[in-house]
Design a protein around this nucleic acid. Structure first.
Length: 774
DNA sequence: TGTCTGGATGTTTTT
DNA sequence: CATCCAGACA
């Protein structure tokens, strides 16, 4: 027997060695699913299957990278790098780059993230003259995304009686039109949103038999992780791809299906057995992760759901400790309690920071935990929330790169056409868009012929300069790599320098972020690529851009750093930690108030709770607060109904009120009171700091209050162009002062003037009246 | 043409 | 509580 099979139990081994035909692996939480998947791929390759012929679809890119590495390790060759392995979205994006032309897209198509998509929706709603109050980008996006994931195109949408009825009832009868216009606009922009990556892949396979044949032939073995979270579009694609060889292996756990909000349907896994001839089903029920107490609790919780694939997890680990259920007075106390408990566990049980995870239902909950950990001096990493690539300065930078690669990308163009300020304002942009729509060309094309479309003098010059600059960047594409171009763009446009000159705290941070972006691009071009010939494995800017849009926070941040990890329960799927805190176990928060109206919704919340509980290996803390700030308002919530679903003999209850001693356990380190004291010494610092800050702010305000000035009788404004640094001037309102600095563009010069009575001010010379005194 | 400000407004979860 | 956007100014 091969070495790599030795560490497997009989069921796992069978799952690994059953290589031919359709296979469904029902893998309970912590049952060694990832190990089975990686070993299975390694086994296929050891048997002589070419890496090029294996497609593995995982839930995160990071999981994919890890699997690749482990497979490489098992096999001891570099072959694994040729595997097609990644998320649905990233794998399809990669394929699409070579196939997009068949569907009328440029191969350098842009991938729109949610922000881009919503921005497009906003303009579309505007252009259709609809009320933006009624057709909010969020609502429209969700509705359209839902349709796309169900493979309902704009035409089907408009012709579907039920859908139309639903929209009527929701008072949004025009959504179909918005959908159609949105799809058209994205196409015109040469852009695909997240859902399009699936839809277009489906269309490609459905409408182009030679493409279907090509990929059926290529992907002889298909593996899909987290199958319970696939949606109809993904389902249909897999069905098409797998039809020729029927070597489709899916791995999943219906009890952990938590993505129905994004179109996933549990039916895919429940009905898999009907989809192929001779489906073999293997269950992995032995849990290697958690203590029996944690596992029993999880089993009891999930029993409250109906209609599952029957399975019972078991373990042979020692019993372990009871689950700790802690009530606190407020959300802040909840944060403090968790920080204290982490300190205590570190000291008493020799856990290190990276052994802890704090999980919650909504991203907003991270705030109180973050604050308390920071105060306690515990290093932490937050996953999720606003990712690196969502930051303004990064999006701006990337918008330049996007525009260079794909000038049709109107979203990118609008973003940077006047950043840094170059005198192309809203009026000009609106005009350009209008011309573009009227003539059915792109906004970029209008700008290219700006004179023809009647732009005048200063504006025309500004546009021409801009177009020339972008074109010069564009011409670098064939010869320069992504890093060189990006660096050049940052330098040439001057906005990196602008950031550098901003010495405020945020300014410094922004500059550092931009540097980090450049580093990441450098890293991208220096990473070795797969050996595939003729495939997309290049170091071009286009490839880079398509890659980063699909990166999540979890893909970028180091999971092995010695820090406490904080994330939503959704983001914690597939991960495990020795000590887990689940916060906010309150009605309307968890379960979410949005999901208590139907049994299906509530069952999904319960599965989510199940996922949370099963992340814990040794210790599990559940916390809830009597009061919580929501929306800037204090709210009170009942304890979550899920608490009552845990067998009570597995739970120790305690209360950790506002600064009062907590009653967790008697002995040892004084029940955290030492930490209470530490906290008390640090807490007062905060209000003091606040008063200090506000006093400064008040002073600044006073400074800004103008000291009245009566202009001299002989006041005659001078020509702003003659102004020089160091000159003494008079301002009608602010009085006498000295010109400290001249900046801004030629079209919009700005002077920083230090006034004798009113301090430093930035004055826009196009508008302010200044007289040169000396 | 750009900046500042107040008032409205929005919170599930994510590729 | 934060952020975002429409109108007032410079």
């Amino acid at each position: 027997m091969q070495d790599y099979l030795k560490g497997l139990n009989p069921n796992q081994r069978e799952a690994v060695t059953t290589t031919e035909g359709a296979l469904m692996i029902v893998a309970g939480a912590g049952s060694g699913k990832t190990k089975v998947l990686t070993t299975r791929i390694a086994h296929l390759m050891a048997k002589g299957v070419d890496a090029f012929n294996i497609l593995a679809l995982t839930f995160t890119n990071k999981a994919a990278a890890e699997m690749k590495e482990r497979i490489g390790h098992i096999l001891g060759t570099g072959e694994a790098r040729n595997l097609y392995i990644g998320t649905f979205h990233s794998v399809f994006a990669r394929i699409m780059r070579g196939e997009a032309h068949r569907l009328g897209y440029p191969s350098s198509f842009t991938i729109y993230d949610t922000d881009d998509a919503k921005s497009v929706l906003k303009t579309v709603v505007q252009e259709l003259n609809l009320d933006p109050q009624h057709y909010k980008p969020n609502a429209c996006y969700n509705r359209i995304s839902g349709a796309k994931n169900a493979l309902v195109g704009p035409r089907e949408y408009l012709n579907d009686y039920h859908i139309q009825q639903e929209d009527m009832r929701a008072n949004r009868p025009m959504l179909g039109q918005i959908y159609a216009a949105y799809a058209q606009r994205c196409f015109k922009n040469g852009a695909m949103d997240f859902d399009d990556l699936l839809i277009k892949m489906y269309e490609l396979l459905k409408n182009f038999p030679e493409a279907l044949h090509k990929y059926q032939h290529k992907f002889k073995y298909i593996l899909i992780d987290e199958y319970q979270d696939t949606n109809p579009a993904q389902y249909e694609i897999i069905k098409l791809l797998g039809a020729a060889n029927e070597n489709v292996c899916v791995v999943g756990d219906d009890a952990q299906s938590i993505y129905s909000f994004r179109g996933a349907t549990i039916q895919n896994i429940l009905q898999f057995q009907n989809d192929y001839d001779d489906v073999k089903v293997i269950k992995l029920e032995q849990n290697y992760r958690s203590t029996p107490n944690i596992l029993n609790a999880a089993n009891q919780i999930i029993k409250n759901n109906k209609g599952q694939i029957e399975k019972t997890l078991f373990t042979d680990q020692p019993t372990g400790e009871n689950i700790k259920l802690v009530r606190t007075q407020s959300d802040n106390d909840e944060g403090k309690y968790v920080a204290d408990a982490i300190m205590e566990n570190k000291l008493r049980n020799h856990f290190s920071n990276k052994d802890f995870a704090i999980l919650y239902r909504t991203n907003a909950q991270s705030r109180s935990f973050e604050e308390s950990l920071r105060r306690a001096g515990i290093p932490y990493t937050i996953f999720g929330g606003i990712s690196f690539y969502q930051r303004k300065e990064i999006k701006d930078y990337i918008a330049y790169l996007r525009l260079i690669v794909n000038p049709q990308d109107e979203e990118a163009l609008k973003r940077i056409i006047n950043y840094p300020i170059r005198g192309i304002g809203k009026t000009t942009v609106d005009k350009a868009i209008l011309f573009a729509n009227q003539n059915e060309i792109s906004m970029w094309q209008v700008l290219e012929s700006a004179a023809y479309y009647g732009f005048k003098s200063g504006t025309l010059q500004a546009i021409d300069e801009f177009v020339t600059m972008i074109k010069s960047f564009h011409s670098m594409l064939p010869t320069k790599n992504a890093y060189d171009i990006a660096f050049h763009v940052g330098k040439q446009t001057g906005f990196v320098k602008e950031l550098f000159n901003d010495k405020s705290t945020e300014g410094v941070q922004r500059y550092e972020n931009v540097q980090e972006l450049l580093n990441s691009i450098k890293e991208f071009i220096e990473t070795p690529i797969s050996e595939e010939s003729g495939e997309v494995g290049d170091k071009s800017l286009g490839t880079y851009l398509q890659q980063i849009t699909l990166l999540t926070d979890s893909d970028q941040k180091d999971p092995n750093a010695d820090t406490v990890k904080m994330m939503t329960i959704h983001a914690s799927k597939g991960l495990e930690y020795p000590v887990v805190f689940v916060g906010g176990l309150e009605e309307t928060l968890f379960p979410s108030g949005m999901s208590i109206n139907t049994r299906e919704e509530l069952e999904e919340e319960r599965r989510l709770f199940y996922v949370a509980v099963t992340r814990a290996k040794k210790r599990l803390f559940l916390t809830y607060a009597n009061t919580r700030y929501k929306f800037g308002q204090l709210t009170q919530n009942e304890p979550s109904r899920f608490i009552e679903e845990i067998p009570q003999d597995l739970v120790d209850r305690s209360y950790a009120g506002g600064g009062l001693k907590n009653q967790s356990s008697g002995s040892g380190w004084g029940s955290g009171s030492a930490f209470d004291r530490m906290r008390k010494t640090t807490t007062p610092a905060q209000p003091q700091e606040r008063t200090f800050v506000s006093a400064v702010a008040a002073g600044a305000l006073k400074n800004q209050k103008e000291v009245a000035h009566t202009p001299s009788t002989n006041f005659v404004p001078s020509d702003p162009a003659t102004l020089q640094e160091g000159m003494k001037v008079e301002h009608q309102k602010f009085g006498f002062g000295e010109v400290m600095k001249l900046e801004g563009s030629a079209h919009n010069p700005v002077a920083t003037i230090k006034f004798d009575q009113n301090g430093e001010k930035k004055i826009m010379l196009n508008y302010a009246k200044l007289m040169i005194v000396q």
